[in-house]
Simulated assay, not measured.
Amino acid sequence: MAASYKPRKGDKSGAASDSPSQSTLIRRWGIRAVLLALIVGLYQWANTINDRFYILTPAELNETVQHSLKLAADLNTDPKTNASLIISTLVNQLADRHPEMSWATDIGNKRDWVFNNAGGAMGSMYILHASITEYVIIFGSAVGTEGHSGRHTADDYFHILTGQQSAYEAGDLTREIYNPGDVHHMKRGVVKQYAAAPETWALEYARGWIPLMLPFGFADTFFSTLDLITLYHTVRVTGKEMIKNLLIGKI
């Protein structure tokens, strides 16, 4: 005699019980689509107002760079100290021209110089100014580096101080070359491979929503170098400068 089976209360069988119903899935993906659309819309709206918060301009910065380069050339400085003279002159001029912004000017303080690993490239940087919509840093490498530029939501301007930087976009068969005094404009949304020769240093200026650039700057730490001490100092210095500028009304 065949045994009979009576399902217990609450016992569910079949594939349908092991996965959400079709209506639940549709609802979940619908919510995600709405959230994504809101984020994209918010980003597009934010990009229509961020220019009202800019104080610096690439043209003015390059004028200051050119003055610093000319001073170093006129003094016929030793190449080993040339970068130090250019950078110190540049930093002092920026702080004098824009007292309405908070600047870090103690470039001799090694504690505030930090390594940066991003897109496979490695360099060191000193954060001169950091706010929500603008940052200005000295960035480069004494030994040279090469990597992925990142695809950013801000415009990035490399004002070359010493050495040489080269770059190209996918599909280009020749490289772009930037020497002291030149400006390499990395437009937002554009991605390149770039390389810096040994002892290349630049004044890097970014304008846009700066916090959205930070994940790219931190990713290599979490997935490659695991250098949490450098990450701590990067967050410490960046946060300190952003807060100082917010307190004086600089967004």
Rank of each mutant, 00 (worst) to 15 (best):
Ala2Thr: 11
Asn76Gly: 12
Lys187Arg: 14
Lys187Gln: 11
Ile229Tyr: 12
Gln22Ile: 06
Gln44Arg: 12
Ser4Asp: 11
Gly171Trp: 10
Ile127Glu: 00
His152Thr: 03
Ser19Trp: 02
Glu134Met: 05
Ser68Trp: 08
Ser141Asp: 07
Gly163Trp: 08
Trp45His: 11
Thr174His: 09
Ile132Lys: 01
Gly249His: 02
Tyr5Lys: 04
Ala37Thr: 09
Ser84Thr: 10
Trp209Asp: 04
Pro79Asn: 05
His148Arg: 13
Asn179Trp: 03
Leu56Tyr: 12
Ile138His: 10
Asn245Phe: 03
Glu146Thr: 10
Asn179Arg: 15
Ala167Glu: 09
Leu85Lys: 14
Val143His: 11
Val34Gly: 01
Ser4Thr: 15
Ile31Tyr: 10
Leu247Pro: 00
Asn76Gln: 14
Trp113Thr: 00
Ala142Cys: 01
Ile243Leu: 15
Ser13Trp: 06
Asn179Met: 10
Ile31Gly: 00
Val65Phe: 08
Lys240Met: 11
Asp155Tyr: 02
Leu173Gln: 14
Gln164His: 07
Gly119Met: 01
Gly249Thr: 03
Asn50Thr: 10
Leu25Tyr: 07
Tyr205Asp: 01
Ser124Asn: 15
Trp103Arg: 00
Arg188Ile: 01
Lys80Ser: 15
Asp78Ala: 06
Lys244Glu: 11
Asp156Met: 05
Asp74Pro: 04
His233Val: 09
Thr153Gln: 07
Tyr157Pro: 05
Val34Leu: 08
Ala121His: 01
Leu35Val: 15
Ile132Phe: 07
Ser102Ala: 10
Gly249Tyr: 01
Pro215Gly: 03
Gly10Ala: 12
Leu42Thr: 09
Ile251Pro: 02
Thr153Cys: 03
Arg111Val: 06
Thr200Val: 09
Arg111His: 11
Gly189Val: 08
Glu134Ser: 01
Asp155His: 15
His152Met: 08
Leu25Phe: 06
Ile177Thr: 13
Ile26Ala: 08
Asn245Cys: 04
Lys70Phe: 04
Ala15Gln: 00
His67Gly: 07
Arg27Leu: 14
Leu231Val: 13
Gln93Phe: 02
Pro20Thr: 04
Ser224Trp: 12
Pro20Glu: 01
Lys6Met: 10
Asp106Met: 05
Thr225Gln: 08
Pro180Cys: 04
Ala59Leu: 05
Leu90Gly: 11
Val143Leu: 10
Ser102Trp: 02
Ala73Lys: 15
Phe53Ser: 11
Ala3Val: 13
Thr174Leu: 12
Val136Thr: 07
Phe53Asn: 09
Arg28Ala: 08
Asp156Asn: 12
Ala196Trp: 12
Ser141Glu: 01
Gln44Lys: 11
Leu69Phe: 07
Tyr126Thr: 03
Ala95Asn: 08
Gln193His: 12
Met213His: 02
Thr105Lys: 05
Leu35Asp: 00
Gly217Trp: 07
Trp209Thr: 05
Glu241Ala: 15
Thr221Cys: 03
Leu35Phe: 08
His98Glu: 04
Glu169Gln: 13
Leu35Pro: 00
Ala154Asp: 05
Tyr54Asn: 07
Ala3Ile: 11
Tyr54Lys: 10
Leu247Cys: 05
Asp112Pro: 00
Ala118Lys: 05
Ala73Asp: 15
Gly108Arg: 04
Arg8Asn: 15
Ser141Ala: 14
Phe115Pro: 13
Val91Met: 07
Lys244Ser: 13
Ser19Asp: 02
Ser19Lys: 09
Leu35Tyr: 00
Lys250Gln: 14
Lys80Trp: 04
Glu63Asn: 11
Ala142Tyr: 02
Asp51Ser: 13
